[in-house]
Design a protein around this nucleic acid. Structure first.
Lengths: 125, 125
DNA sequence: CATACTGTATTATATAAGTAATACACTATA
DNA sequence: TATAGTGTATTACTTATATAATACAGTATG
């Protein structure tokens, strides 16, 4: 799965990497001891400096989501399904809350918001 | 309406100001020629340097959303209802798209996403 | 015309973020 | 054991963001 990095939205690249890799890890798609893309490979893929990728991975290790092994590579940390589910819910709730706050400030009703989601969800499947 | 500035999420403060003031302007709550909070007052309110606020206002003027008058103050630009509506829709769509992308990466169905919205929309009204 | 507000510019300083090039540390493996 | 692949550190440099203090520019109003 490719990462989608935006260089112009003001969100630090290493944070964008963290957010997207975090979602990959807790999504359950990657197996238990899967190897992640190497620092250099991911850096090349998204056209970014290796140290920027390394920084993102370092923070994700602090979060307990992956393990870094010098000379070997990067592996998904052993997480229980419950841990993954909790993280996944936290990520989604944070995003949904932002959207709801935006909708409220724009005076959009819950029904109008849901209508927009219904429409956009089927656009680029 | 108070602005909610987060100093720790990596999003530049002037962009957070822009996003929130933009929503206020196009929401229709503030009247046609309403005065906005002065640079110094807003800066004091959110505990930020006046030049950071001035920068946000400068960009919003470039977007055509407000007018800056030295010695007088800041005023909402004359916008048609259609212009406001378009901007409002653009803001919401951008936010919704982010949430949908997050939901997809977390393998959440449209129905599950809508269920979460139904739940969270009524939490802090 | 003095005063008290507006918004803006300047200068200096600090920090975060990102890049580039190079070197280092570690491990698997032919 | 040489090699090629891991991740990491260092150094130098650039840019963006934010602050502080001060000064400047413009307007309304007593």
């Amino acid at each position: 799965m490719l990462l989608d990095i935006n260089h112009h939205n003001g969100i630090p690249i290493y944070r964008q990497i963290m957010d997207q890799v975090r979602r990959q890890i807790v999504s359950g798609l990657l197996g238990e001891n899967s190897k992640l893309l190497s620092v250099r490979d991911l850096a090349a893929q998204i056209k970014v400096n290796p140290m920027t990728v390394s920084k993102a991975y370092a923070y994700l290790e602090m979060e307990g989501l992956l393990l870094r092994n010098r000379g070997v590579g990067l592996f998904i940390a052993p997480l229980t399904d419950q841990q993954k589910q909790q993280t996944r819910e936290g990520i989604i709730e944070e995003s949904v809350k932002t959207t709801i706050a935006t909708a409220r400030q724009a005076h959009l009703s819950k029904e109008e918001l849901i209508a927009i989601i219904e429409r956009l969800y089927n656009e680029k499947p």
